[in-house]
Simulated assay, not measured.
Amino acid sequence: MQLRIEDMTCGGCAKSVTAAITSVDPNAKVEANPAARTVKVVTSASGARILKVLEQAGYPATVS
């Protein structure tokens, strides 16, 4: 799943995004690119669940 996260602008943001995703699926593979404001996620969790946890963490995302 490829996500666009407009509010992810730095490495600290990327860490927070990664932590939010791995709180739902500890085995998720997360590649965050703050410069492009994109995240690639390989997870067994549902897309809706990932989007919800990111919203709760303050990083609303859209599927791109």
Rank of each mutant, 00 (worst) to 15 (best):
M1R: 05
M1S: 10
Q2D: 15
Q2T: 13
L3P: 01
R4F: 11
R4H: 12
I5A: 00
E6F: 09
D7M: 13
D7L: 13
D7R: 13
M8D: 01
T9C: 11
T9A: 13
T9R: 15
T9E: 15
C10W: 12
C10A: 09
C10T: 10
G11R: 08
G11H: 11
G11F: 09
G12F: 13
G12P: 07
C13I: 07
C13T: 06
C13E: 09
C13M: 07
C13R: 08
A14P: 01
A14E: 02
K15E: 05
S16Y: 06
S16Q: 12
S16W: 01
S16L: 12
V17E: 02
V17C: 07
A20L: 06
A20K: 00
I21Q: 02
I21F: 04
I21C: 08
T22S: 05
T22M: 05
S23I: 07
S23Q: 07
V24C: 04
V24Y: 02
D25A: 04
P26V: 11
P26E: 08
P26R: 11
N27Q: 14
N27L: 14
N27P: 02
N27T: 08
N27I: 05
N27R: 14
N27S: 13
A28Y: 01
A28F: 00
K29D: 10
K29F: 08
K29P: 01
K29I: 13
K29T: 14
V30G: 08
E31P: 06
A32V: 14
A32Q: 06
N33Q: 03
N33D: 15
P34T: 05
P34E: 06
P34H: 14
A35T: 09
A35I: 08
A35C: 01
A35H: 05
A35L: 06
T38C: 02
T38S: 02
V39T: 05
V39E: 01
V42K: 15
V42M: 14
V42D: 14
T43E: 00
S44Q: 11
S44E: 09
S44T: 11
A45I: 03
A45S: 08
A45G: 01
S46V: 00
G47M: 06
G47H: 05
G47P: 08
A48Y: 08
R49E: 15
R49P: 00
R49K: 13
R49H: 10
R49C: 04
I50E: 01
I50M: 12
I50K: 03
L51F: 12
L51A: 11
L51P: 04
L51E: 12
L51S: 13
K52S: 10
V53A: 05
L54M: 09
E55L: 14
Q56M: 13
A57R: 04
A57K: 07
G58W: 04
G58T: 09
G58Q: 12
G58H: 10
G58P: 03
Y59Q: 04
P60C: 08
P60T: 04
A61W: 00
A61E: 02
A61R: 01
A61C: 11
A61S: 08
T62S: 07
T62L: 05
V63E: 12
V63S: 05
V63G: 03
V63Q: 11
S64W: 03
S64I: 07
